[in-house]
Simulated assay, not measured.
Amino acid sequence: MNSHYPQDLSALADRPDFEIPSTPQAKVGLAGRIGRAFVSAGVFLGVTLGVAVVLFVPVFIFNLSRIEALEVAGETIPVSLFFDQLGALFWGTAIIALAFTSLMTGLFVMAAGATIRPRSQPVGKEDALVHLTVLRLSGSER
Rank of each mutant, 00 (worst) to 15 (best):
F62L: 08
V39I: 10
F83A: 05
S22R: 10
A37Q: 06
F60R: 07
V109H: 04
L89E: 13
L45P: 00
V130P: 00
A112N: 04
E75T: 09
D127W: 04
Q7K: 14
E19F: 11
A41F: 12
V39H: 05
G74P: 10
S10I: 13
F82H: 13
G32L: 14
R117C: 03
R33Q: 15
V72R: 12
F60A: 13
P118K: 01
I34E: 04
A112Y: 03
V72D: 00
A94E: 04
D84W: 02
L45D: 04
E141L: 08
T93K: 15
V39Y: 07
R33A: 14
E19G: 01
F18M: 03
E75V: 15
D84S: 09
L132A: 11
A73P: 00
S120F: 05
K125R: 13
L132D: 14
L89G: 10
V134M: 09
Y5S: 04
D14F: 10
H131K: 06
T133V: 09
F18K: 01
F100M: 15
F82M: 08
A88P: 00
L103E: 12
S140F: 08
N63G: 03
N2S: 13
I34Q: 02
H4Y: 01
I34L: 15
V109N: 02
L103G: 02
Q85T: 11
L86D: 09
T48G: 05
V72A: 01
G42V: 02
T115V: 05
E141H: 06
G106V: 01
S138F: 12
T115H: 01
D84M: 09
L137F: 04
L49H: 05
I67M: 07
I77C: 06
V130M: 09
D17M: 10
H4I: 02
L103F: 15
F38Q: 10
G113P: 00
R36Q: 11
Q7C: 05
L64N: 06
P21Q: 03
I96E: 12
G29P: 01
V72M: 13
R15K: 06
D84P: 00
L107Q: 03
A94P: 02
G74K: 14
R136Y: 14
E68R: 14
L70W: 03
L55W: 04
G87L: 15
D17L: 15
L12R: 10
E126Q: 13
F38M: 15
T23C: 11
R136F: 15
V39K: 01
V79Y: 08
F83Q: 05
D84E: 11
G74C: 12
L89C: 05
M1D: 10
F100S: 14
T76H: 00
R66S: 12
G50E: 10
G113L: 05
R33W: 15
V43K: 01
A128P: 00
P78H: 07
A94Y: 13
R136I: 12
Q25S: 10
G87Y: 06
S102H: 05
L107H: 01
I96C: 07
L86G: 11
S22Q: 08
L30G: 08
A31E: 11
D127R: 05
A97C: 13
L137N: 01
E126D: 04
T76V: 09
K125L: 13
F62S: 12
P6W: 12
G29F: 03
G92P: 03
G87I: 07
Q121V: 01
A114Y: 06
I96M: 06
G42F: 14
R119C: 04
T93F: 15
L70T: 02
F44V: 09
F108P: 00
T23A: 13
E71W: 05
